[in-house]
């Protein structure tokens, strides 16, 4: 246990002393500031688009950080020489190493997401006349979904990274998530007026996965909100999305754990 917490501590230090995390955080903040400046010159309906864009950008940033972090865990720690070479002969189980690494990255993603959403909801409206939705709870839901989605991406990228090189794992995970984002039926969702109509326009198979699509693409919530006036998703919807995301994340993590137990740690 001591060594597992040690690995989590090491992962934190590695990331907080590295450039990637700070570059991502600063890029996100700059992007949000730019969007807020633009919204000052925008017409009312454009404000909405800018708002959607700011959510999309925050979401994408978290997703990219998650995918790049996850895709390289297995390669740097297990396939190539890495900390597994030190810890495994010392009696630390491989799954403990992977779990500690993933847990540390998930916590970092949580902090990054919290920082960006807090800045967007609390700091930006004070500095500029950036619009704030009347119901702040929707920000909480967006934050939760963005975080869950990035965790799912982290776990899927970790699994794919245990099967292939990090580049292929990144491309594979991006492809999977693009399917969620670039569903052609999103256009029809935009013109739908209710969630039921949206599900109908998705078709039978996709409508079964509507909750999953929402997790992959939290902007669907905004799409729904844009049709009305910041409609708060139902508790059942949030719970269902939460379950889907957790299921995907744990399933991928389980597969990754199974895979690394058979992986050769080469010199």
């Amino acid at each position: 246990m001591l060594r597992v917490t040690g690995i989590i501590g090491i992962t934190f230090k590695e990331n907080f002393r590295g450039q990637i995390l700070w570059t991502s955080a600063i890029s996100g903040l700059v992007l949000l500031i730019l969007v807020s400046i633009l919204s000052g010159t925008a017409l009312t309906h454009e404000n909405r688009i800018l708002d959607v864009f700011s959510y999309f950008a925050t979401d994408l940033l978290l997703l990219l950080v998650a995918i790049f972090s996850g895709a390289s865990i297995c390669t740097t720690d297990f396939s190539a020489r890495g900390i597994a070479e030190l810890y495994v002969p010392a009696g630390v189980k491989r799954h403990s190493i992977l779990f500690a690494r993933v847990a540390a990255h998930a916590t970092i993603l949580f902090l990054l997401a919290a920082c960006l959403y807090l800045f967007k909801t609390s700091v930006l409206p004070l500095l500029t006349d950036f619009p704030r939705p009347p119901d702040v709870r929707i920000h909480l839901v967006m934050f939760l979904f963005s975080f869950l989605k990035s965790c799912t991406a982290l776990c899927i990228a970790t699994f794919l990274g245990s099967l292939a090189r990090p580049l292929y794992a990144v491309l594979g995970t991006l492809t999977l998530f693009s399917i969620g984002h670039l569903t052609s039926t999103l256009d029809s969702l935009l013109v739908s007026t209710t969630q039921e109509q949206a599900q109908q326009s998705l078709g039978l198979v996709s409508s079964l996965f509507y909750s999953t699509l929402k997790v992959w693409n939290p902007n669907l919530l905004l799409v729904e909100s844009l049709r009305g006036e910041w409609l708060m998703p139902t508790s059942a919807g949030i719970g269902s999305a939460f379950l889907w995301a957790t299921g995907f994340a744990l399933g991928s993590l389980g597969l990754a754990l199974g895979r690394i137990s058979r992986l050769d740690i080469r010199g």
């Binding site: 090491i10 590695e14 020489r81 900390i83 002969p89």
Partner: peptide, 15 residues
Amino acid sequence: KIGYIPELPVLPSRI
């Protein structure tokens, strides 16, 4: 129970 000293240990970066 075993101390392993690899030929070229790869230690974590920035630690």
